[in-house]
Design a protein around this nucleic acid. Structure first.
Lengths: 190, 190
DNA sequence: AAAATAAATGAATATATATTCATTTATTTT
DNA sequence: AAAATAAATGAATATATATTCATTTATTTT
């Protein structure tokens, strides 16, 4: 018995992300994906039931990967501002170094591929952020708003900036990053 | 000679927006649009050369309409914070009461329909906001960052919140709006 | 080494979709 | 009121795309 090959799934995912970054979710075809992944079209159907399942699987993967990335070096013993700074930089970093995944997720959030109830930010994946926000609120450091609302606020300013820079082919400078962190922290702190 | 009918363009646009809100840009077909607009498919081609032109025309319309909406009641004589509050509320209002247009614009920004250089926030349309930010910087009220960066920051937190609320079928409460304004203002002010 | 097995292939098929075009309809001009 | 004109129609056409399937290939088991 010949085994399925995990590398192929990675190839398929990577090809898909690359194409979505270039042409958006709208333009993407199974034929394009297979070509970009150096596979026959039929092979895609060995690994995924159909296009919808392929997109959904990639969506799930990107979403959990991104959350993991955010909490790199996260340490609950750190002071709130220290923790938040680390986290914030990780979020920015992910947007910049995995722009294709970030864009793919954003496109999915409003596509027919993803069920409505699976869209938007997942509270489960962001549990450590929520705990941090709670801690900040208890210590009277952070504004007493709903965690989701705080999260949308934080993600929003990072997302828009990442996209803005990208579409103008600009890099994130140290000054820009410093401003962005300062503004975001000033926004949520008491 | 029979005249073309401006109402039909409005019908076509409105049908398109409705469909994009429901299924995203990915799912949309000319047949769907014509049905939703109560027109024959061929009629679409009297008003637009093809699908791409239809989408582009709607994109241009939505973008200029949204900018106009933002600056309702804008008065350069107002104090910076007063002006900003008005503007901020208009932006929020537009996202909420024209969610379909907002989502359509967001989808377009990363689709093959719209040329890369036309994507992202247009500085021209946002001139009054830029002037306001400059005034704030001169008066030492607003952080001395690039106008585009400040704009991404402001739009970002509003956009993400509007989407978050929408996908969870929640309304924007007065408290939420008050928090959002406070956070955004604290973020950009010195 | 041969047989068995499932992955991999890519042409063929089925289907969905954009666009065209001959015909009809409504409006305007004469 | 008749003729002229272009909009409007929707079935027909052309094209693009998802999916299937008979055949080949690589790997594993015997």
């Amino acid at each position: 018995m010949r085994q399925k090959d995990d590398k192929k799934i990675a190839q398929i995912f990577s090809a898909t992300l690359q194409l979505v970054e270039q042409n958006g979710l709208t333009g993407i075809t199974m034929c394009d994906i297979s070509k970009a992944a150096n596979l026959a079209t039929g092979t895609l159907y060995i690994y995924f039931k159909n296009k919808e399942e392929l997109i959904n699987a990639l969506f799930v993967e990107c979403r959990s990967e991104s959350a993991q990335f955010y909490f790199k070096n996260h340490n609950t013993a750190d002071a709130v501002e220290v923790s938040f700074r680390k986290l914030f930089h990780n979020i920015v970093q992910y947007r910049l170094s995995h722009f294709e995944k970030f864009v793919f997720l954003e496109q999915c959030y409003h596509s027919a591929f993803i069920q409505k109830n699976k869209r938007g930010i997942s509270s489960k994946a962001l549990q450590p952020l929520f705990s941090l926000l709670n801690k900040g609120k208890q210590q009277n450091i952070i504004k007493k708003a709903d965690n989701l609302l705080l999260t949308w606020y934080i993600m929003g300013c990072v997302n828009e900036t990442a996209k803005g820079l990208h579409y103008r082919s600009k890099k994130m400078s140290k000054t820009t990053l410093a401003f962005l962190f300062r503004a975001c922290w000033d926004g949520i702190k008491k």
